[in-house]
């Protein structure tokens, strides 16, 4: 199908973008990589008056050190995160997750900020940002504010972002010296959205896992932090008994909805499988 008619603006500054949002209100839609928005326009699921293309805003681009951590601009493309040596060193979880997002041609255009703003429940970046304890940097004509990734995702496809706000960057805290991360995902076919995925992060000291973060995608409306499973493994060596205990606790953390392809029971089972693999890998 073809999109209905819309106007197009490519502001040269954030101030200009805010002015366009103020003038057009609900009729305006921000355009980043377009890899989720343009399909919905082509299928006429959305029919905005005006697209505000963020493509000329240099301040939204790029990956830079922030102390010992990282700041990644909202317009940074999936492929740039996948290739970045700085990301591989300071937030390897993101480098591990990137190849699971769609296909190369889509990763060449889709952006970090677009994925977070869209908040698809099966998307990789939202779960990774929660696992990493990232801060989401949001700007509007009223100024800038920071929201922890854990608080940013509100409900299915709903976030903290107000209609007049733009997600400008993600800030990722420095990794602990013993930090380890694993990203695992089960999909029906390479590049498809996940049936179930797991972004896992922990520090390994003296053979024990500490500060364990297990964040699931594809099992709820938003990324799900598996607090009971995390508590079960905290401070333990990831031996068979501890892993089994964490897997058991998962039924308190997850109440997945079945979808067209995977029943709720199957999703919970697959989440347990991924938990076992991830904890073993974190401890290795």
């Amino acid at each position: 199908m073809k999109a209905s008619s819309f106007g197009y603006a490519r502001p040269a500054s954030l101030a200009e973008a805010f002015a366009l949002l103020a003038r057009h209100g609900e009729g305006a839609k921000l355009l980043a990589g377009g890899q989720s928005l343009i399909p919905s326009l082509n299928m006429r699921l959305a029919a905005p008056e005006l697209l505000v293309d963020l493509g000329a805003l240099g301040e939204l681009e790029g990956i830079a050190p922030l102390g010992q951590g990282l700041r990644i601009g909202a317009r940074t493309r999936h492929c740039e995160i996948e290739r970045s040596a700085l990301v591989a060193e300071r937030a390897p979880l993101l480098a591990q997750a990137a190849p699971h997002i769609a296909h190369v041609a889509i990763r060449n255009r889709g952006t970090l900020g677009g994925s977070l703003a869209l908040a698809d429940p099966a998307a990789e970046w939202p779960a990774c940002c929660v696992a990493l304890g990232a801060q989401i940097v949001i700007a509007s004509a009223r100024g800038e504010r920071r929201v922890a990734a854990e608080q940013f995702f509100k409900a299915l496809y709903a976030t903290e972002l107000a209609a007049d706000e733009i997600l400008v960057a993600v800030e990722i805290p420095p990794p602990a010296p013993q930090a380890r991360s694993v990203f695992l995902e089960l999909a029906r076919r390479r590049g498809d959205y996940a049936m179930v995925g797991l972004a896992a992060q922990a520090n390994r000291t003296d053979g024990q896992l500490r500060d364990v973060r297990l964040v699931f995608l594809g099992v709820g409306a938003i990324p799900v932090l598996a607090r009971h499973a995390m508590a079960a493994i905290e401070g333990k060596a990831a031996d068979a008994a501890a892993i089994a205990a964490a897997q058991h606790e998962l039924s308190k953390d997850l109440s997945p909805n079945g979808d067209l392809y995977t029943s709720a029971e199957a999703k919970l089972h697959l989440a347990r499988v991924l938990t076992g693999r991830a904890l073993a890998a974190l401890a290795r």
């Binding site: 197009y8 377009g34 890899q35 343009i38 399909p39 082509n42 697209l51 190369v104 041609a105 889509i106 060449n108 255009r109």
Partner: peptide, 8 residues
Amino acid sequence: IVRGCLTL
């Protein structure tokens, strides 16, 4: 490479 249908 990009998707030509997802690029204006």
